[in-house]
Design a protein around this nucleic acid. Structure first.
Length: 280
DNA sequence: AAACATAGCAACCGCCAGTAA
DNA sequence: GTTACTGGCGGTTGCTATGTT
């Protein structure tokens, strides 16, 4: 047999929280701390499901929540992180101290989606809405840009980011990008990818400890490293010195180490568990 | 001023991975 | 090894506020 049920389905309130319920929840968590959401409602004298308490605390009552409007920098960071991670709102929230996944999700759906559409960018794919599968576009990394001793021919638009590698024109861009994101390294891909074993199973450090890096990270990501005509995602994220990256950019890693915001996901410092991002 | 449309956001729902029993 | 619960996540809903006609 498993555990007992998390909460009584009956006799629980739903809908908007009252001030009194908020106060009870805050008082209880201040005294006893977070955790054991199952027993919390009863212990705190709340007629709520533990799940509901957790959500209310995390999304609304937590004292370290930032509240207020998103800044332009936060906007851009969300866009870029979304282009990397997709709808992984909790991961994205992990890079925005004081913001919750729910808040970012809402903000994306209400503001950023429209913003991108106005720019002619598909918010789902981060590519121009008129993009044709067989036509190389600015979202493809066939652009040869150079940062730090790398060739530059045409820098990518600031809000479009892709980690696909150069590939024959008959290969759909979508397939390329998905494969790269998912770290699918077919033999054919390995011929062309400098960092074939890039793994997006990233482990991220606690945001509150790195918030000062947030802004430099943005500027760095607006100038991703190119490796022979392709963007090396690992380098872009600042893992040149790590095992994760075997691309040629390592040759200049000494310089890159000085790059501000280089350690975007704080990977250099070792294994970091994104779950530690949960804001407490 | 009233009616309607739209935007914003808090909260719920359902699913899933991990894990206690 | 199996069952069933917990905690967490992403998607969606529905209420409220604001804007427009």
């Amino acid at each position: 047999m498993g555990r007992s049920p998390c909460c009584e389905k009956a006799h629980t309130n739903k809908g908007a929280w009252t001030k009194e319920e908020d106060d009870r929840l805050i008082a209880y968590i201040r005294t006893h701390g977070e955790g054991c959401w199952r027993s919390l409602p009863k212990a705190a004298g709340l007629l709520r499901c533990g799940k509901s308490c957790r959500l209310r605390w995390i999304n609304y009552l937590r004292p370290d929540l930032k509240r207020g409007n998103f800044t332009e920098d936060e906007d851009e960071l969300i866009i870029k992180l979304h282009s990397l991670l997709g709808n992984k709102w909790s991961l994205i929230a992990g890079r925005l101290p004081g913001r919750t996944d729910n808040e970012i999700k809402n903000y994306w759906n209400t503001h950023i989606r429209r913003k991108l559409l106005n720019r002619g960018i598909d918010p789902a794919t981060h590519r121009p809405v008129t993009d044709h599968p067989t036509t190389p576009t600015t979202t493809s990394t066939t652009v040869t840009t150079t940062v730090n001793n790398h060739n530059v021919t045409s820098p990518p638009p600031p809000d479009i980011i892709s980690f696909a590698t150069a590939k024959p024109a008959h290969v759909k861009n979508e397939e390329m990008e998905e494969d790269t994101k998912l770290n699918i390294s077919s033999p054919d891909h390995q011929k062309q990818e400098r960092c074939p074993d890039l793994n997006l199973e990233l482990r991220i450090g606690p945001p509150q400890h790195h918030s000062s890096n947030m802004i430099p990270s943005i500027s760095y990501m607006q100038q991703p490293l190119m490796t022979g005509g392709t963007i090396c995602f690992a380098c872009s994220l600042g893992v040149q010195d790590n095992k994760e990256c075997r691309c040629s950019a390592n040759a200049t890693s000494g310089n890159n180490n000085n790059n501000v915001g280089f350690d975007f996901f704080k990977i250099k410092n070792g294994a970091l568990d994104y779950r530690s991002l949960e804001m407490k």
